[in-house]
Design a protein around this nucleic acid. Sequence first.
DNA 1: CGAGGTCTTGAAGACGATCAACAAACGTGG
DNA 2: CCACGTTTGTTGATCGTCTTCAAGACCTCG
Lengths: 251, 251
Amino acid sequence: MRGSALPSENAAGIHPLILLLERRDRLSPEERRAIENLPWRIRSFDPEEDLVRQKDRPTESCVMIDGFASRVKSSADGARQITTFYVAGDFVDLNCFVLKRIDHSVTAVSRCRAGFVSHEALTALIERFPHLTRLFWTITEVDAAILRNWIFQLGRRNAVQRLAHLFCEMSRRLETVGLTRGTGFVFPVNQPTLSDMLGLSIVHTNRSVQELRARGLITWQRQLLEIGDWRGLAQLAEFDPDYLYLTPEPR
Amino acid sequence: MRGSALPSENAAGIHPLILLLERRDRLSPEERRAIENLPWRIRSFDPEEDLVRQKDRPTESCVMIDGFASRVKSSADGARQITTFYVAGDFVDLNCFVLKRIDHSVTAVSRCRAGFVSHEALTALIERFPHLTRLFWTITEVDAAILRNWIFQLGRRNAVQRLAHLFCEMSRRLETVGLTRGTGFVFPVNQPTLSDMLGLSIVHTNRSVQELRARGLITWQRQLLEIGDWRGLAQLAEFDPDYLYLTPEPR
DNA sequence: CGAGGTCTTGAAGACGATCAACAAACGTGG
DNA sequence: CCACGTTTGTTGATCGTCTTCAAGACCTCG
């Protein structure tokens, strides 16, 4: 399967990985061609299906094409915590390319597709283009910044603020990949899954959603989440998008 | 100031950064020499002093030589959350080398020293040795794995378990850099700071410490933390060190 | 039409926060 | 070496947030 066959949701038909990388730095035509020509293998997943299983030693890494997925860590007694939430364009498991094994599962949240490429091919790619190593590293650092911010949310914010913050973050991340529609976006996530993101019980998650509704900040029906009052929501969440590093830096 | 002047706590007198990197992969003699010859600048800090300030755009990055430091995110109302805890050998702000700005402060927890090196020098280093880029990236991925695990702890574990887990993690991390003494280690952290790591109030942190003492799992006096019952502590915390990636992987 | 998932509500209780006060340890200067 | 102020650790009491348990409403899909 050739790279040009890799579908993408964006109008321009540009490869999602190229879009992701060009958010960080310009690519040369050779680099772009090399990425497109990687032996991509596209796979589809249903909700709850695993893209990568905990304690596996995968030989491929993957990039989200569409839909949503999550990195889940679960404990002996069945408690689940989502540590990362992946949307279209996100590189899912760069870490297992580097670290050779994975200490989490990656599970589909909605129906989704991902493009898989072998570690061998990635190794060959970065050996040929050291500049791309640098870019992959940058992506990892941005992911880490998002993780640090989640630690802050979980440690020091109450349920409603966490939820508000999650919606703010989602909105901005989906906006950068062109998946918002006006002030809203498709959010195919049920409340049990949402509670695993927020570190809350299902019941309390539900009540927090209702509070945001009651305050007139959001509406959410039929998987369409509308942010009715962005300023109010961002203020409640004390949302400061700096940690997403969306504004490009000279390098 | 030349690299050979960089002091280190380890008996062999090996540069802490070289130790850190060789935990991940073998270095060539040239690489080792190049790292030692970087223009290191050593600075000392008192507790509460900032190594790097929030929203700065630093031109240097640093490696911990001794003592402890933390990455702190704080909110408008003064709530503080520590997102990363640094011990000797840790590379503190690789991320600001890559991302060009920093969205946290890095604050000394105890008296500590760090070796600073300019971004220019680091850039020259990785351009000469692309292999080192790969290693720095690996370090970032390990840091991210630790962050993900903290997210799980904060989201799904109660106070006592979190504290137990923190002590287990500390013990293993300090052991790899030769800073344990038998079953104990020097832990110059006060309870207010500890509560900022755990996302708890000071009072509740105190009660959790007392519970671990009462269960006979630890003693802690005069900054010396002794793990009296490792198995019991690890079992309580459900501690599984896989996420620290301490066992080397072939690459 | 029935079945299973999802959302919602109520009530009770646990966990952790907050407030307030005191004890102990530490560092400093006299 | 002691006196004193400051930081750190400890305790009790009360309050609020969030969890748990249980049950019912709603929705979707075969």
